[in-house]
Design a binder for these strands. Structure first.
Lengths: 339, 339
DNA sequence: CTGTTAGCGCGTTCAG
DNA sequence: CTGAACGCGCTAACAG
């Protein structure tokens, strides 16, 4: 391995001068700079980031922990964060926690050991233990997409409650009254907020939602399928389903098919999170779409501000609006199911 | 920050002993080990991975460069690689090159600076310049999913030629004769191999494919749409389309819809790469499915072998079979289009 | 079984 | 404008 002192020797200067040339820090005369640059090129010198980081106590690395790398919502978030980090000369470490708090904690410990400068965290649960670990080490954190119980943390997320509220209003206005909610885990804020939005829409309309129509499970298609089969098999099945994320919606669509329900004729389905156009030969679902890429961007920007502004600015909470896109999966209820 | 010498002082031993306890290397008596562990717990000591890596010259980190993080094929590869790396105590750095050689080179330079122990590379192009950079630094590489021109490199990929061959045989056996290929970039081996498979199927059947039916573009839905619109507008349009990846297929489906072609009645569509079940309310496309997760696993295993086996074993090339799954998007051609 | 010595490759500090 | 000395936190290589 070629080190800075090899370059120094070759250029007939001290290592310090080489360091100054590489980092454009301090003054160097044009001729020596040139000699150094020649030597660097000639030897093919590449600085060792590890040594640099050890010395300077900054790793120029952020980490992003997401809960499902196969979900395009999160990959969009990742791209947003990656682009911003890259523009500021920071590397970004992706970690996939699979909705598991254990994995999350494992990753966080690893990241602390690796001295990452900051963490973007989609927490697997409301009461994230990893927040405590990070705080103990004074590692700046921005929570993304979901809330946590811990106070005084920066958060960047979409308006779950509002999006759900609008989707349900849409269904109510079409005449639906029995609307099922297929949700994720009770320990995740987005699930809670979306169910809350559902409830508010009902209450404001002077209606009382049937508690039995609210099901909790998980964020995958298989779970969506199970939950949908459950509600569709009820004595008084719902005329509409609100899937709390995109994968659950896919499961619900599959269940509708196996139960012989046509969408939207026999059953309306609406969901949170749009699918990327890459997927959709034919966009079909009525959704509340979140600006995923922007979520990632804003979160990374906020984190970088915290790092640079040496600051104890108070925690900020950024809530990005959600856009309801009405498509063909929602329509008026079939006769006899409305009331 | 609490360092190893704080722990040593607290436990009344040397730093070396602490190091041995932490790393379970060398001998330590039970009582001193206990004292050290107490001190570690008491002080909340966390080893600094940077310092450790600098000293030991191994970062215990691999990197995976993929060309499109939004494509579930690659995220599956990523999970496979991640799981294997994690099991062996290695971290995995994800990098998204967006099919850009420039970005690829930027990332590779960054990774070299960061002293990663090995790289899993989905090359943006056949003649990957980054291979040279990596080799110059003697960084072990396993090429994934695609071939490169450079010789003597480990490769793990799916059988593109064979999969394409089978898909086309399937279409030929249904009676199709005018089959369009919507491909990616000419500089990518998977595109080349899949087109080659297409050609072989024709040649073996004693037929000559129309060169004008082979279109090159890119791997995204938008490009698939454009290419499909192109062939569907021909004077003698194809009765079937072979999309070289899943996103192109989505674009082709969209194009079929805007052109008013029903699939499979008026137009058959087959594609490479399946979509994950999370996506598919209703699996519809006839595809050649690659074992993406396993691709990632095998690649990571091979890389780790190279790292551990101190070895100049000759380069291996692992080609995993591809499975053709016939679904509803392919059927016999409409009357009058067959011949 | 444990401690000492000597760096890994860099950048900070303070003299020149 | 440049260099010498030092140390970041840790572990390899030796003693003992």
């Amino acid at each position: 391995m070629i080190t800075i002192s090899d370059v120094a020797r070759h250029a007939g200067v001290s290592t310090m001068t080489v360091s100054r040339v590489i980092n454009r820090s301090g003054y160097t005369s044009a001729p020596t700079r040139l000699r150094v640059e020649r030597a660097v090129a000639h030897l093919g010198y590449v600085p060792n980031a590890l040594a640099r980081q050890l010395r300077s106590k900054r790793s120029k690395t952020l980490a992003l922990l997401i809960t499902d790398i196969t979900n395009p919502f999160f990959t969009s978030v990742a791209r947003g964060a990656e682009d911003v980090a890259g523009d500021h000369g920071f590397g970004l470490l992706f970690c996939n926690t699979d909705e598991s708090e254990e994995k999350e904690i494992e990753y966080v410990s690893m990241l602390i050991q690796r001295q990452v400068d900051g963490v973007l965290l989609v927490p697997a649960s409301l009461s994230s233990r990893s927040m405590g670990l990070l705080r103990a080490r004074a590692v700046p954190v921005v929570v993304v997409d979901r809330r946590v119980r811990a106070a005084g943390v920066d958060v960047v997320r979409g308006d779950s409650e509002g999006g759900a509220y609008q989707l349900i209003r849409h269904l109510l206005s079409l005449g639906h009254r029995r609307i099922a909610v297929l949700a994720g885990a009770r320990s995740v804020s987005t699930t809670l907020d979306r169910v809350a939005g559902y409830r508010r829409a009902f209450v404001e309309a002077g209606l009382k939602p049937d508690r039995d129509l609210v099901r909790y499970g998980g964020y995958h298609a298989a779970e969506g399928y199970e939950m949908a089969m459950g509600v569709l098999a009820m004595r008084r099945p719902p005329s509409a389903i609100f899937a709390v994320n995109n994968f659950i919606a896919a499961g619900a669509l599959a269940a509708a098919r196996t139960m012989g329900r046509r969408v939207p004729d026999d059953l309306s389905i609406v969901a949170f999170d749009d699918l990327p156009t890459n997927w959709l030969a034919d966009p079909f679902l009525t959704v509340a779409a979140q600006p995923a890429y922007e979520l990632g961007q804003r979160a990374a920007e906020l984190l970088l501000e915290r790092l640079e502004g040496d600051g104890k600015r108070r925690a900020r909470s950024i809530v990005l609006p959600t856009e309801v896109i009405v498509r063909r999966s929602s329509g008026p209820p079939a006769r006899g199911l409305a009331a």
